[in-house]
């Protein structure tokens, strides 16, 4: 696990992330995306904002707020560990609300079209092993989960120190276990200690 933690805190990842965020970053979560073994399905088109709001109006307001902010508040970094093109993204969609065609796919009819093809201007991102894709999750995006398309992608989320986001992904009390950070470089250990210091108060109430 140490090699994973070390590389996520590596300046080659964090440096770029912090240039984008315009200041210090906080680690939030690590996921590992793999192809399923038994079945295949296309992912659902979504913006991460839709999981944080209660209705359409609130989401529109949230996107307006993000658009007017000088900096992006958080980013996802997906590192392909083998060649893969499972992520699709709609460039420029993070700074505006949906067009009617986009809203039809993402939201209409109780989201029943969200796995359909035909999202306007969608870009399938081809990554070679070792490449990273950084994206603003406010923009339209989706994955793909096909058993015959190998996928091994490390998915890391970072947030800005100025826009700390509290959700279930940040509830990771094991970062406080005495030996958890043992063996990490001082720089990496410090990065995760800062994360724990910021999020610790939520762990007792949610874990």
């Amino acid at each position: 696990m140490n090699s994973i933690l070390e590389m996520i805190a590596d300046p080659r990842c964090v440096g770029t992330v912090e240039q984008i965020l315009g200041g210090p970053s906080l680690f939030r979560s690590i996921s590992y995306m793999v192809n399923p073994r038994y079945s295949s399905e296309d992912g659902n088109w979504h913006r991460d904002t839709q999981f944080m709001v209660k209705d359409d109006e609130e989401e529109r307001a949230m996107i307006r707020k993000f658009r007017s902010a000088e900096n992006v508040s958080g980013v996802h970094l997906q590192i392909a560990l083998i060649d893969n093109d499972d992520i699709e993204y709609v460039p420029y969609s993070a700074n505006r609300y949906d067009s009617p065609d986009e809203a039809y796919i993402r939201l209409d009819d109780n989201k029943s079209h969200c796995r359909e093809d035909g999202m306007p201007n969608a870009l399938r991102v081809a990554l070679k092993a070792g490449d990273g894709l950084i994206f603003d999750p406010v923009g339209h995006h989706r994955g793909r989960y096909h058993k015959e398309i190998p996928r091994r992608s490390l998915h890391i989320t970072y947030t800005s120190m100025n826009h700390v986001l509290h959700d279930e992904f940040a509830v990771q009390p094991w970062f406080d276990e005495p030996s958890y950070l043992t063996g990490l470089s001082p720089r990496a250990a410090g990065y995760y200690r800062t994360y724990a210091d910021v999020y610790r108060r939520n762990w007792t109430s949610q874990s």
Partner: peptide, 25 residues
Amino acid sequence: VKEEGYLIIPEIFRGNELAQLKNAC
């Protein structure tokens, strides 16, 4: 990222580092 929403970073990890990361995952 502010304008287009995304950025591809080629070759963040390669060779032994990439293999080590994949083995760990």
